[in-house]
């Protein structure tokens, strides 16, 4: 076991876990931040997408050892205070989720896209979101929600 200090959603968390434990298990099972989901464990589905210093990354393949050095970790729980991020609002407006399991990851990936480019083309959206699987097949609504949120963000 080893002690780690993690900066998550603007709070410092202390955890004692095995060296090399994946950040996903630390977030979910040790810290109770269960909005980030486990889907594949090999960075193929994107259900565990979080932000590290603003960059979208797949938590399942990150080791806790490498992210306890003050890196800013953001999960879906820390994205907005009341679920009112423009991307979340657009997600509701477009009724994007079905089962909803992949959507924390989808939203985190979409936020990263729009922070870099609030007016992405459809092809840019598809390329950036291609690593996030949705088995329910909500992709078209995700695209529409991203376009809608992009407009809100661009107008600000």
């Amino acid at each position: 076991m080893a002690a780690y200090k993690l900066e998550i959603n603007n709070q410092t968390h202390d955890v004692n876990v095995e060296k090399g434990t994946s950040l996903l298990w630390v977030l979910r099972e040790h810290l109770g931040l269960t909005g980030t989901k486990y889907g594949c464990g090999i960075a193929q589905c994107g259900a565990c997408t979080i932000h590290i210093d603003g960059n979208p990354m797949k938590a399942c393949v990150l080791s806790v050892d490498d992210f306890s050095d003050g890196q800013k970790i953001t999960t879906i729980e820390g994205l907005s205070k009341d679920g009112d991020h423009p991307v979340q609002q657009a997600w509701i407006e477009k009724q994007a989720p079905q089962c909803g399991y992949c959507h924390s990851g989808q939203i985190m990936q979409a936020v990263a896209l729009l922070e870099a480019n609030p007016t992405p083309s459809r092809d840019e959206i598809k390329a950036f979101m291609n690593g996030n699987l949705c088995r329910c097949g909500t992709y078209l609504r995700i695209i529409e929600a991203i376009e809608m949120a992009g407009k809100t963000i661009a107008a600000k």
Binding site: G35, T36, T75, I76, S80, Q88, I92, H103, I107
Partner: peptide
Amino acid sequence: EIPAKVDGTA
């Protein structure tokens, strides 16, 4: 149930 599915609380 959609609001809970966009903020991680579902």
